[in-house]
C-alpha cells in the first residue's frame, strides 16, 4: 500500500497570514475591468461635480477658498464613499459564490482577507477622489490654497474607511448583488441629510438636528475642515462613532458567518 509518507513538519506557514502583492494586483485589475465600478468611481462623481459645481454663487467665499472648492471636496467624498462601500459589499458577494469557503481552504487568514479588501477599496476610493480633483482643476472654478488641495484628499480618503466597513456590513445583511441597490440610493440620501450636497444651514432646525446624527455629517465636516477652518467637536464624535458602529456591525456579521462558511 503506502510506499512513502509525508512529514508535516517540513511544511511552512506563509508569513503575514497570506498577505501578498499578487492578490492585491489581481484584485485591483479586477476592479478596473468592471464597467459598473468605473462608472461609480470615475464618471459619476465627476459628472456630479460638473452639474453641481456650476450653480449660482459658485465663486462666493467659503473658508479659505470658494463655494466651488467646497462642492469639489464634498463630491470627492461622496464618490469615494460610494466606491468604498461597493468594494466592501463584494466581501459578502464572494461569500455567496463560495469563494470565501475556497479561501478558507488556503492559509489566508480571514482578517488579512478583509484587510486586503479594505486596501483595494481604499485604492479605488483614492481613484475616485483623484478623478474629482482632476476634473475640478480642469474646470478651473474651484479656488483654495495649495495646502488644502494637498491635505484634503488624504483626509477624505481616511473618512472613506467608514463606508468600506458599511459596505461589508450591508453586504452581509443583504446578500448578493442587491447590496449596491441599497447602498447607492442609501448613500445619496445620507449625503443629502449629512450636508454633502446641500449645506446644512439651508435646512430647517428640525432636519438639521436630525442631520447631526447621520453618518455622512461627521466625515463631511472633517473632509472640509482644512478649507472651512471649522470643525465642531460633535462632528468628530459623529465620525468616530459611526466608524465604530459600522466596523462592529461588519465584524459581528462576519463572525456569525464563519460559523457556517
Amino acid at each position: 500500500m503506502t510506499t512513502q509518507t509525508i512529514d508535516p513538519s517540513l511544511r511552512r506557514v506563509p508569513p503575514f497570514g497570506g498577505f501578498n502583492l499578487t492578490v492585491l494586483g489581481i484584485e485591483l485589475k479586477r476592479m478596473l475591468r468592471n464597467r459598473r465600478t468605473i462608472v461609480f468611481t470615475l464618471i459619476l462623481p465627476a459628472a456630479l461635480l460638473l452639474s453641481f459645481g456650476g450653480q449660482k454663487g459658485w465663486d462666493d467665499k467659503a473658508g479659505s477658498g470658494n463655494v466651488a472648492a467646497y462642492i469639489l471636496i464634498s463630491m470627492a467624498l461622496y464618490g469615494a464613499a460610494l466606491t468604498a462601500a461597493a468594494g466592501g459589499s463584494m466581501v459578502a458577494l464572494e461569500r455567496s459564490l463560495g469563494w470565501s469557503r475556497q479561501l478558507r481552504l488556503t492559509p489566508l487568514n480571514p482578517v488579512v482577507y478583509i484587510l486586503m479588501k479594505a486596501l483595494v477599496a481604499l485604492a479605488m476610493g483614492a481613484l475616485a477622489i483623484a478623478a474629482v480633483n482632476v476634473v475640478g482643476a480642469l474646470q478651473g472654478k474651484a479656488v483654495m490654497p495649495t495646502h488644502v488641495w494637498v491635505i484634503t484628499p488624504f483626509l477624505t480618503l481616511v473618512c472613506t474607511l467608514t463606508f468600506a466597513a458599511l459596505g461589508v456590513f450591508i453586504g452581509y445583511v443583504v446578500p448578493g448583488e442587491n447590496a449596491m441597490q441599497i447602498l447607492g440610493p442609501g448613500l445619496a440620501l445620507l449625503s443629502f441629510l449629512g450636508g454633502v450636497f446641500i449645506p446644512l444651514d439651508q435646512y430647517s432646525d428640525l432636519v438639521r438636528h436630525i442631520a447631526y446624527w447621520t453618518p455622512m455629517y461627521g466625515v463631511s465636516e472633517i473632509a472640509r475642515s482644512v478649507l472651512t477652518h471649522d470643525l465642531p467637536w460633535y462632528a468628530v464624535v459623529n465620525a468616530v462613532g459611526w466608524f465604530a458602529i459600522f466596523v462592529a456591525g461588519a465584524a459581528w456579521r462576519m463572525s456569525k458567518d464563519t460559523a457556517r462558511v
Binding site: 509525508i6 481552504l105 492559509p107
Partner: peptide
C-alpha cells in the same frame, strides 16, 4: 501548511 485541499462540486470560483 498547505497539507489539506478539497475539491467541491460547485462554486468556489
Amino acid at each position: 501548511r498547505g497539507l489539506v485541499s478539497a475539491v467541491m462540486q460547485t462554486g468556489g470560483l
